[in-house]
Design a protein around this nucleic acid. Structure first.
Lengths: 359, 359
DNA sequence: CAGCATAGTTGAAAGCTTTCAATCCGGGCT
DNA sequence: AGCCCGGATTGAAAGCTTTCAACTATGCTG
């Protein structure tokens, strides 16, 4: 509403002085300073971020591009980023891409015209983002990639140690005696997916366990994907005794499929997730899962951005956060043979539907 | 990068003409128009939203203020809003308040200086927002309140029919034969909380069931709140046979408490939630819950905003979206007496911890 | 064919801030 | 007392767009 000119008049000083008081860009003697501050307070003045940004070639916004807020892993990252950004006086502009590269480009191009101080992106795919990122950098904005990496990325990154997490989980599964494993990966064009798969395979290779390619299925990182691929896996012969899900949402879908097929987890079939969402604890049975620090990924990314904004122009940073396996009740001993679930009291979950189309 | 001046030079026209072509603010003859478009394309020019906003007194941003992205109900609302906004060319600036009124004010004040076209708020409390909203309106931005309402609010609103949802759920519970109910409400300064409580009480009153005030507990809308208050309720004599949770997060916390006390749901105690989060289906047991359309709340709010931006200045709209009870397995018949859970096979969940400090 | 209306095009101002060069003032030094 | 210096303050330009009034050219009318 009020603008600087009015404040200047109100305080009986020049425009420049008001600006200097507000930004501390020059020392202003106390009496004047006070008059300005009083005028600002009495008018409830707040500087126009638009004009300020235009003049400074930079705003206090930070663009954040994520696949989908609706997937519970991402809000944690967003929240982490927002908390650090807010504390430093920066605000977040949020964009969802649905893992659609085209949408990602649209968002990036438009965001740039707001001259944000930085950009945090969880890439939608391994498509090369170098060009867009370069144009951000040229306009003075730092860019950091989180969770997944695009092709040829040469900037800052914050990721979880996906391969190690998957490797540990797989080893745990193997120690329980499972021989017939299966994995439902996330989309193969995402580096977090492929790294998890890599860890899985490495553990298998070390134990000299061979797996037919049909036991490795690819799905979207959501419940429906997990559900569909699980149904598919359950029809295979021999049936896998455990499924390693590329993330918890996939695992949740798998649980649904188990239930529908009248299978009890972990007695009839085991399951391991990835992400360790808050809700993994709540499922039936509580889901064992690889925990990765979503919130911390957000804070770390934002922190790097803050450093860059403040002038750090060192070489690219690559922070890899640790993962840990969280053991709950969803992995049991393997059952051999088929249809074994009939040999024990009907699984509680079976109540829901027992239309077992088994073969 | 490139600015309009360069485009003008490149196309051999004036600044004004470029602007007219870009905005369709005046008819420009085809050959010129084409030259301009070509120049724009070849330079990869995109207008500065900052300068544009400054000049137009309005940007294509929409502020969205929510309590916490990390609570799975809100992302649905955010996503709904973003989808509609994006489609109309608007972008979302996201702010979390943690239900802290002070933070809310800070966000609103700053957001205004970006001259957003609108503001979608899920208020942090019933604190009066009229003043802030008024100043938004004066600067030409529409404001709509979602999910909860602040005091004296006279603007657009989108809410769910909380009272009806709670009323229906309570009636369902009563029909199952429960007489000894308890409710864990959300914070009493949130209208959605109080309306849910109202529905609960109305159903009780109609059936002439009286409840001591200690059976109505207040908690934050999160897992921890639900957990703590459930432990408290479980120690009461007579012990409630069912708990109606103010939202699903509280219900999840209750499940945790049940587990810890070695109680099996629904055999030993029943539970009803509110929100019907995706994950309500996944818990042990699957949670009965009042479903409210979060995504649709977001789209509706954004749609109203779009209408306002386009000039609709009719009287305040008050959209109340319907709720529906979703019955799953968490409500059973009431058990009378105490310690009844010892009479059946130990609940599966009891495995986790059986440190029952019962009395 | 002159004159006028109209459609198309242009240049400049305005929107609000930051910043730089210029000005002002007072004090210290000789 | 005069000069100079440095610190405090000011005024104006610049950043990029939109928009309005003014201007040009075009087409039509009489």
């Amino acid at each position: 509403m009020a603008n600087m000119k009015e404040i200047a008049k109100l305080a009986g000083v020049s425009l420049g002085t008001v600006s200097h008081v507000l930004n501390g860009s020059a020392t202003v003697r106390e009496p004047l300073r006070k008059r300005v501050m009083d005028a600002v307070a009495s008018a409830g003045y707040q500087p126009s971020q638009l004009a300020r940004g235009l003049r400074r070639d930079k705003t206090n916004m930070i663009g954040m591009i994520i696949p989908d807020v609706t997937n519970p892993f991402f809000p944690a990252v967003v929240r982490g980023a927002e908390d650090v950004a807010f504390e430093h006086g920066y605000r977040l502009v949020l964009c969802n891409t649905d893992n659609d590269h085209a949408k990602e480009i649209v968002h990036m191009n438009e965001l740039r015209t707001y001259l944000p101080s930085g950009l945090i992106v969880i890439p939608s795919s391994f498509s090369d983002l170098t060009a867009q990122a370069e144009s951000f950098r040229r306009s003075g904005a730092a860019v950091v990639c989180v969770d997944r990496l695009p092709l040829n990325w040469n900037g800052d990154t914050v990721t979880a140690d996906n391969e190690k997490g998957a490797y540990d989980a797989t080893n745990y599964i193997l120690r329980q005696g499972h021989k017939q494993l299966a994995m439902i990966t996330g989309p193969r064009h995402l580096t977090n997916s492929t790294n998890r798969l890599k860890g899985f395979k490495r553990a298998l290779a070390e134990k000299k366990i061979h797996l037919g390619p049909e036991y490795i299925q690819e799905a979207n990182f959501d419940q429906h994907g997990g559900y569909a691929k699980t149904l598919l896996l359950l029809r295979m012969i021999p049936r896998p005794t455990v499924i390693f899900a590329g993330n918890d949402m996939i695992a949740f879908g798998a649980l649904l499929a188990f239930r529908e097929m009248g299978l009890h987890c972990p007695d009839d079939i085991s399951l391991f997730g990835f992400d360790n969402l808050d809700l993994a604890e709540m499922t039936s049975p509580p889901l064992s899962s690889v925990s990765q620090p979503g919130y911390q990924m957000g804070t770390t990314a934002a922190q790097i951005l803050m450093d860059r904004v403040r002038g750090d122009d060192g070489p690219p940073k690559h922070v890899v956060l640790d993962t840990a396996i969280k053991i709950r009740d969803s992995v049991g001993k393997p059952v051999t043979g088929d249809n074994v679930h009939t040999s024990r009291t009907p699984a509680r979950a079976a109540r829901v539907s027992r239309t077992g189309r088994k073969r």
